[in-house]
Design a protein around this nucleic acid. Sequence first.
DNA 1: TATTTTTAGCTAACACTGTTAACTTATACT
DNA 2: AGTATAAGTTAACAGTGTTAGCTAAAAATA
Lengths: 198, 198
Amino acid sequence: MLVKNDRQKQKELTKNAILKVAEEIVLQEGWQAVSIRKIAEAIGYSLPVVYNHFESKDAIQEEFVKNGFNMLATAMQSTKEKYAAPEQQLTQMAVTYFDFAFQNSAYYKMMFGLGIPSCQKAREIEEIGNFSSIVIATISNLMVQDDEQRKLLKFHTLWSILHGLTSISMVNLTAAPDEMQQHILLDAVQGFIKNINR
Amino acid sequence: MLVKNDRQKQKELTKNAILKVAEEIVLQEGWQAVSIRKIAEAIGYSLPVVYNHFESKDAIQEEFVKNGFNMLATAMQSTKEKYAAPEQQLTQMAVTYFDFAFQNSAYYKMMFGLGIPSCQKAREIEEIGNFSSIVIATISNLMVQDDEQRKLLKFHTLWSILHGLTSISMVNLTAAPDEMQQHILLDAVQGFIKNINR
DNA sequence: TATTTTTAGCTAACACTGTTAACTTATACT
DNA sequence: AGTATAAGTTAACAGTGTTAGCTAAAAATA
């Protein structure tokens, strides 16, 4: 005979179990490998029990998104409190962001819908090389010293800026209006160009 | 009676038809909604015919990635040729990149495995707001003028930089070694800080 | 305490999915 | 004309998300 509180406690327990199992599968095989049946078996219940805790598979993903952003927010907040100067705060918060993404990659992938398109093969696609060359050639003309390593670094920086802006506004996470997008783009690229020779 | 050339022509034709159908479905419902059966019906053949042109569903996606990077490369090359000064080249190439992503969003989503996590709901998740506030508060301390609109712009710029770097190195598209990642990150963020007051 | 109501859990099914094996039909070549 | 080859078919396997309908146990009521 369970009191109301014990019930709720039990419910939360299995809910956490579900999320934990899902996280493990995501880490090893990706979100598409997560199945309600696998989860059910892992937590020792039959299939429809999962639906008592989550309305759908998408709802599980949504939980990851929410939890993920909460974890990220608290991590960055605590980093911020360790430093006084805003410059240092921002720089260290950037490191925290990056670390969070890789230490909790299951969450990060959910948060931005990264489907991991064949991580293994991605590097072998030569078409990407063509694209890189064109950009690197242009960057090269802006740089005073001819350091191959630095060119590569600058290329990756620029590509990150472009892809980041693009995918964030594509996933529609922000409420930024359309006319703002162009400003963000130019703002970021001009900052990149200004900083290109250190 | 078809000659060898006609055969190959026919084969390429249906291959293109497959890709076109896939593209349409991706645009309207996303990659996960693409099914071999839907494709087969749309091109007027039975199911296994699709497998004569593509080894698997993943192979179709890979074709999108390759074609996508080719299209992107040629678009950026042609933009580059329209300008003389490297600063202008780079700026306009950034615009081209951005435009490509949205005009060919089916391709771009494939190229980076963007799964579109509930585009509709994404904006309603308040957890994202918490995260934003923390970063904006820090950015605010670095800015001399107190323009709310500009703060938002700078936040999106920084977030784009962070997410771009993170997801590109997570998808493992680049051959950048691990110790370079940190450099890219700091390079980008310091460029951002330097440029924060225009 | 006995009876009803609510809850928890189950099995079984539906309508899909990617993928493949085995068969049939039409075309091309000797 | 007869045979090899290619093209295309149906049917099945193993898996997916999701739901309807049933059973057994616990909680609440009388």
